[in-house]
Design a protein around this nucleic acid. Structure first.
Lengths: 340, 340
DNA sequence: ATATTTCGCTAAATCGATTTAGCAATTTTC
DNA sequence: GAAAATTGCTAAATCGATTTAGCGAAATAT
């Protein structure tokens, strides 16, 4: 291949100034009163030689990198994040943006470090699943006018774009579903965390339980470095509360641990214990019996995320948007005795 | 926050030239005979004010973006890719590199388009799961001296770094395991594709079958846009070949389809049909019965990938490396009648 | 004591774009 | 027909780094 072209080469070749070329390429031909004839000539030539402006030079001059940072809990752990990554990718590319990713492991320190790392590198926008306690860092991004979209959970202290689901209500509906199917001693297993989305799911559970004068059974487990230990903890919890006849797992990986715990105790689903988990995945679909889930509308979530981000980047929309999407209860075999 | 510092500000503040600052920051103090006293003073000051050089300016001048492109089949589909993404992330960051990702859907045209898109934007290196037919594009990257590491599969026409697993031998071993457990009519379900890794897996199957004078049963299905159709095709295949007593699925998603097909026919695993799948995942671990798999050593794969890439980028190592790692047969309940 | 080398540092060019300020030529206004 | 406005374009500064070529002072050689 030949050496890379610059805007200077284009100007030289056509016998015009680089200023003119730049104006035309940036769609300012009209505004800058460049004749239509010349405009077309330049565009045609640029197309012909397949000229692409150097991003570094553009970035240096404009201060924009055309890069969006996708900061998730763990790109490999919760399928949700990889799916979002996949779904926002194409639209970003279409608008000339690239996406870098990084994983926080849901740790405050790591998230702060990553934000600091990237903000020195002129990232244009951030899509973040925020751990608790990074409000200050995010606020300072916002103060600089850098678009931020929080996803999966919100930071209530912050006035920031976010895309979340109806955690409280969808959990409430799921518990109601269990209650309507005759279950009385319904447990709720969640993370030991104050994250917004978790608090809301717990809230939905508590609301349903309180409304029906049932006894709450809440078990909190640690974060997911400790899979095996969490399986044991859930098993112990079930052994200590033998009257539990239904159980709700507040995330997909807790659901996986829970199924292991139930298997280890030789309990039958749903006869001995009914099961619902948050988040859908192959394992739940094809488990025997299949597991009822609260499924997040991943495509809708993703399209909202990227739309919010691109609109903010292109300054089409400077308002703050708080998007709350409904989740869907997908009823399978694990949550009703009638089905088996 | 205060405005962003530049190397010029540093120089002004300390009363020295920006040249000196640049030399020191680039570790060329010794080489350029800057006194130790000044070197330390500058480093201390830079640390104090937390100065970070502007990547755009550096990139413009040096032609390096400090960005690696991770081009996979589909970041959300095969967990393998998301895991690799996760595992290479940290080491790349440590060395000052960021990672952008994109998905080819295993389509030649899309891969070519993406490479063209990114090469105009000075990406320093590419980690690619190549679809067939993009040899020319990759060769032209190589010709420009841009490091490329192929992963998951190789392009045999190319002299290029790659990290793959022993597809042929590991499949061979898995089939031998079935044979040793007394299965005689062993089927192999794979993609309708000539990709290297698939060809090798088929080769391993054929070798084992031929060595034991067994009858081969090979079924090829389409790519994974058509999940339901593929389930049906596998089911039909099994109905047409009722004497099949064991089946090997050559990727994880084919494995998932296969399990659905087997379930739809009400066949019991392993009594009616033994099962082994390539690639491990939760579904196989926790399925009832648990599924024997050929598991890829994802951490080893990932560390080789990023090491090859970083060494090539830092020009520590200009040799081409062809890394072939062993995979591991994880024997579970689905592949032996003795276990049940 | 002078010529040469070494030391310690810097001025200025450069990468490739954007953008401000402004220049001739032409057209309009009165 | 002269002044004013518009048209169509460009020169040059700028973003913030790297890097080449080189300068004056001090150290060493002769």
């Amino acid at each position: 291949m030949s050496k890379k072209l610059s805007i200077r080469d284009i100007g030289k070749e056509l016998g015009i100034s680089i200023t003119t070329v730049s104006f035309i390429l940036n769609g300012k031909a009209k505004e800058k009163r460049i004749s239509e004839a010349l405009t077309e000539k330049v565009l045609k030539f640029v197309e012909e030689v397949n000229f692409k402006p150097n991003m570094m030079a553009q970035g240096l001059r404009t201060g924009k990198s055309k890069i969006i940072c996708l900061m998730v809990e763990d790109i490999s752990n919760n399928l949700l994040f990889a799916q979002v990554a996949r779904l926002i990718e194409e639209e970003a590319h279409n608008k000339g943006y690239r996406i870098i990713y990084c994983s926080t492991d849901n740790k405050k320190e790591k998230a702060i470090e990553l934000i600091r790392l990237f903000r020195d590198r002129s990232i244009d926008g951030y899509i973040i699943t925020p751990p608790e306690g990074i409000e200050k860092e995010i606020q300072s991004l916002l103060d600089e006018g850098i678009p931020v979209v929080l996803i999966d959970r919100n930071l209530p202290l912050l006035d920031c774009n976010h895309v979340v689901i109806e955690n409280l209500n969808s959990t409430y509906q799921a518990i109601i579903h269990l209650i309507e199917n005759g279950f009385k001693n319904i447990a709720f297993v969640t993370l030991d965390s104050d994250q917004m989305q978790m608090a809301d799911r717990l809230g939905g559970y508590q609301k349903a339980i309180a409304e029906h004068n049932l006894k709450p059974y809440v078990k909190k487990v640690g974060f997911h470095d400790a899979g095996e230990q969490n399986v044991n903890e859930i098993a112990s919890f079930l052994k200590e509360n033998k009257n539990i006849d239904a159980i709700f797992f507040s995330t997909n990986y807790i659901g996986v641990w829970g199924l292991q715990a139930i298997k280890s105790l030789n309990l039958r689903i749903p006869n001995d214990i009914a099961v619902i988990s948050f988040d859908d995945q192959d394992l739940f679909k094809f488990y025997t019996p299949s597991i009822t889930v609260v499924a997040q509308p991943v495509p809708e979530i993703s399209s909202h995320i990227i739309r919010l981000m691109l609109n903010a980047l292109e300054e089409k929309d400077t308002q703050i948007h708080e998007i709350v999407l409904p989740a869907k209860l997908i009823i399978r075999e694990s949550s009703s005795l009638l089905n088996t």
